[in-house]
Amino acid sequence: MIETKTPSKLEKILSSGHMAVTSECGPPRGSNPEAVTKKAELIRNHVDAINITDNQTAVTRLCSLASCIHLKMMGIEPTLQMVTRDRNRIALQSDILGAASFDIHNILCLSGDHQSFGDCPTGQNVFDLDSMQLIQTVRLMRDEGKFLGGDGIDRPPQLFVGAAANPFADPFEIRVPRLAKKVAAGVEFIQTQCIYNLDKFELWMKQVRDRGLHEKVYILAGVTPLKSAGMAKYMKNRVPGMDVPDEVVHRMSGVSKEKQAEEGINICVESIQRLKEIEGVRGFHIMAIEWEQKVPEIVERSGLFPRPKIEM
């Protein structure tokens, strides 16, 4: 497919045709690095790279870059999530260089949840760039070795560039054109929103294939194991852009409370099995929210273990 352009292990795994597995950790609301390193330790042998979220849901946390550096020092490959909500183009480029100076090789470009959801709803937002323009910026810095201002960069960043895609958000008709737009901006891998509505995802993937986009970008299907029927209902009703079909909610509430967690894992594993069969799905992004200890079980039961060894 695409020649590798960076030293990213994730890129190498994808380009060599393996199904990739990524996961993510949210940094703590404090400065204790163990909150990240302990979670990462639990899953390091079962995933190829770990995303570190960037002040997710607009709640102030330990920064993504510092957390990524902790992972890097443990010998784990991080994916730096970067939202355009909090930083202008000076700060974004500066943090990209900071990441590059620690040889961080993956970045996920996002706009970020609106600050009204977080702990600083009275704060200012920035949005100097949007997620697509951040993709363009990273590609410019990497491929042309230039800053947005036009000057050259000494030792340009070597970042494998990712973005998110939500196949379920509205309006559905532009969901594939939107992906095409991100591809045109230069995105190289996509991690999707959590998939519960597999029928709708298959329809989206068909449209993706019809436009040949699956040949231009690695798509990692996002999954999140449900811990309880309550969580299923919450995701269905409260989380914007989330599509949880009734049958999933029924299946979760159809078993006793003690068995719901297990049922959530079962659904997740079955989803991965089905998603694996879809042409164009090149891996999985497992977002086990504060439930990282379950990632190894999900990876193993889905037949995605052991992870491929890549010569770096």
Binding site: F127, D130, Q133, A169, P171, R178, K181, P240, G241
Partner: peptide, 12 residues
Amino acid sequence: KRLLNGPCGGST
């Protein structure tokens, strides 16, 4: 979010 290339994933 003043997105010049929207919508974001939160449009419902």
